[in-house]
Design a protein around this nucleic acid. Sequence first.
DNA 1: TGGCTGCGATGCGCGACTAGCATGGCCATC
DNA 2: GATGGCCATGCTAGTCGCGCATCGCAGCCA
Lengths: 302, 302
Amino acid sequence: MAIMQVQGLRVFREVARHGSITAAARTLAYTQSAVSRQIAALEADVGATLLDRAARGVTLTEAGRCLLDHADAVLDRLDVARRDIAALRDLGAGRIRIGAFATAMAALVPRAVAAFQAEHPAVAVHLVEGLTPRLLERIADGDADIAVVSSPPDDPPDHTRYRLHHLLDERLLVAVPRDHRLARRRQVRAAELAGESFIAGSADAEQTLLRATLPAGWTPRVDIVVREWTGKLGCVAAGLGIALVPALAVRATPADLALIRLRDASVRRIHAVTAAGRTPPAAVPALLRQLRAAAPTLTARR
Amino acid sequence: MAIMQVQGLRVFREVARHGSITAAARTLAYTQSAVSRQIAALEADVGATLLDRAARGVTLTEAGRCLLDHADAVLDRLDVARRDIAALRDLGAGRIRIGAFATAMAALVPRAVAAFQAEHPAVAVHLVEGLTPRLLERIADGDADIAVVSSPPDDPPDHTRYRLHHLLDERLLVAVPRDHRLARRRQVRAAELAGESFIAGSADAEQTLLRATLPAGWTPRVDIVVREWTGKLGCVAAGLGIALVPALAVRATPADLALIRLRDASVRRIHAVTAAGRTPPAAVPALLRQLRAAAPTLTARR
DNA sequence: TGGCTGCGATGCGCGACTAGCATGGCCATC
DNA sequence: GATGGCCATGCTAGTCGCGCATCGCAGCCA
């Protein structure tokens, strides 16, 4: 048995509106016979007479009136469905869930998101900060749509599970006081920092940053631990030591200290990551474009 | 372009439920290829990818989840429509608007309606009392579904505009006091009533009742006018005169008077009338059956 | 690592469906 | 009684959709 064709309902609604099969056929660009048959099929389907045929057009029966209500609702709902999906596609609606590691949250992601929202104000943005492994989990589980993660060049996220969109390679900077012996240098080698006292964000964080590059067995001397960037850089400015600064964390060069490129430090590769097998929300490519646009502004050296 | 086939939505819902095209195909008794194509067609129609195809089954995309909501609503609504129409057809719902002239309201219609309601308690019954011409108007205008009307045998309602369902021919009775000279008779001729004093319901109502049969120029003598049947029959019992009584108005023979069949009075034909060109609500045939069942019980002479 | 299995996509062919054409019947109007 | 408008229907051709078979791909296991 035919299963209540949408086309049939559409035709039926038009017939009901016009009170005439012929008139409905005209506006639908069908022949009268086609419409007549559509109605007949619909009647056979629902098992009731829908129209009373008279000399001048047709009239709805009780069953016809009943069906018309439902047909209107159904057709309207289908229009809504079509519109909703189009809105999702054209970024007139929807949602994007973004994950990013802490440093990316400093400037890269906020700038990209701001530009994205200016372009697509109807899309809801969810932001989550986290460490790279956890962010990748979220992507794999479908709990986030896109994540900005950092990874060593020799250990990128599994490209069979993730689609990687390279954004930039993050340089590591060294912050030194204005009067430091290296303050005039544009770049230094890590080895030259041996013997310096490091001001760290946490006891072993800088070790992680330097580990890949520094000679094995060499451990930077950490005398002061300061959590916040402002405090850390304040200590540097006061001459208490030097500090490693990921380039992404720098929004503007502070006046009272120097930032020197660490020449041979392993760069961290910054990727935007999406799930490999999944069709991303339409907002993802748009945000990706903004991330790509924002990335160069943060790698340029001042 | 195809217009969002219902079948497509149904298939899509099943696929979403199972998370697998093959599994959905099995439960739908289709081949995997058919379902795969249905989904592809739906995707082309809405202009968005609905499923992510993985090695183990499929997952909904954002657009897919969006469409699923709407598809559920639409399919549910179609089921409701089907159910509603079936209910109308099977008298599990709906309404019937009945018109009837006053005398029919005394017993015929109430009995039929009572039996009908016992059979189909879900159908709402609207009752309207009125004169035959007005009732016929209502039928023609679609303001009533069925009407019980009376008409002279030689002037039935226009059968091109109305479907007539003959219920009974109503005899006219004469009510006389128990000690009246005619009280023992089973029937009388109208001519035998000449000279009698009539107790009428209204000044000229009885003339209407008798006009067709009585010799032209003969006018029954009306001395007393009493509106109500009970009062009218009370007057007869008290010996104040005799009265004409439509058979339908008699529910039980009063003990204190005699009812005599008026042999040559023009009978009134009682029809149930429906609109000729219109499909009646399903309740109409059912009520018609009850009217036909109730009619004989009111024509049988006690 | 190579066969195996399960899943979805697709080329091909046939059957069913459906729209169009032409015709016929019915009713109202002139 | 003729005419015109409206709906139903027999017939035909084009289209669509399903099934069959096959292919490609990914994960699994020995």
